[in-house]
């Protein structure tokens, strides 16, 4: 009995620590300034205000949100397609050097971003892609395709080869077998791998801050970081913008959390 109580107490502690920053961000964004700047914190907004959110809609935030949606959306889509194709090849074919290729794509996510940021800047400048959506998307692909492919491969491996084989025995071509038999089974894995790409791209700061310096194409992390460094004391406004920035990733994460956990853990456990 005491053991159960201790367990629930530990769980409660974990939940509180995990969620508090989310909670505090939302609460702060809803409190009037007078309630934000108090010696003793007010844990619940007694008179919540939504002005800050309405105010955000008049500023550049909708545009920046759209920029972020565009970049992260395209990165997600391209990552998904690349991982869908390559993951299948790596799961089903005996490819020369497959082992090494797998190690390479897994270690990409371990690479210091600073190794990539300078030459990519030079490349983007030389190809006139600096400050364009395409350039930033290209740089984000470097961060997403490796693990996404690895994750999708592990989902393919969970599907018995026999399913495809029997479809092919029945006369279907490989492509048809994949389309009719494999794809319906692998799409939750595809969703998880792609959303991994979305979260990575949406949250990324270093490339975005370096390559997107024109204000009309600024993405949310860059804008938020710059706003925060210049309007240091507007805590309520910054929190409201942070909430807007956080909502999409949390929603996507909750949609695919089960597969996403499975896939990410597979990368660590089997790698």
């Amino acid at each position: 009995m005491t053991k159960r109580v201790l367990l629930y107490a530990a769980m409660l502690g974990i939940v509180v620590v995990s969620l508090f920053p989310f909670f505090w961000m939302v609460v702060t964004s809803l409190k009037p300034d007078a309630d934000i700047f108090t010696k003793t914190p007010e844990f619940l907004p007694t008179s919540p205000i939504f002005d800050r959110y309405l105010h955000l809609f008049d500023g550049p935030v909708p545009r920046q949100f759209l920029n972020s949606v565009l970049v992260a959306g395209a990165t997600t889509l391209i990552t998904g397609v690349i991982a869908l194709l390559a993951g299948y090849a790596l799961a089903r074919y005996k490819i020369p050097l497959r082992r090494y290729l797998l190690i390479v794509i897994l270690s990409i996510q371990m690479l210091p971003q600073t190794v990539l940021v300078i030459p990519l800047f030079v490349v983007l400048r030389n190809t006139d892609l600096l400050g364009t959506y395409q350039g930033l998307i290209l740089s984000h692909l470097a961060l997403t395709v490796g693990l996404a492919t690895y994750m999708l491969r592990s989902f393919y491996l969970d599907i018995p080869v026999e399913l495809e084989e029997s479809a092919m025995v029945d006369g279907a071509s490989r492509l048809k077998a994949v389309r009719l038999v494999v794809f319906p089974l692998v799409w939750p894995g595809l969703a998880a791998s792609s959303i991994y790409g979305f979260i990575t791209s949406w949250n990324e700061l270093m490339f975005s801050a370096t390559y997107m310096q024109q204000s009309e194409r600024e993405t949310l992390p860059v804008a938020l970081q710059q706003y925060f460094s210049s309007y240091y004391s507007d805590w309520g406004g910054v929190m409201a913008a942070s909430v807007i920035f956080t909502i999409p990733v949390v929603v996507f994460f909750l949609l695919v959390q089960k597969r996403l956990m499975q896939g990410m853990v597979a990368g660590a456990v089997k790698g």
Binding site: S18, W202, S242, L254
Partner: peptide
């Protein structure tokens, strides 16, 4: 609880940096 534990991983680092600075 497992889902809640993983949630901070998804939070944008810029946003969490701001919140922690406020904390």
């Amino acid at each position: 609880v497992t889902v809640i534990v993983l949630l901070p991983w998804a939070m944008p680092r810029v946003a969490s940096g701001i919140v922690w600075k406020w904390i």
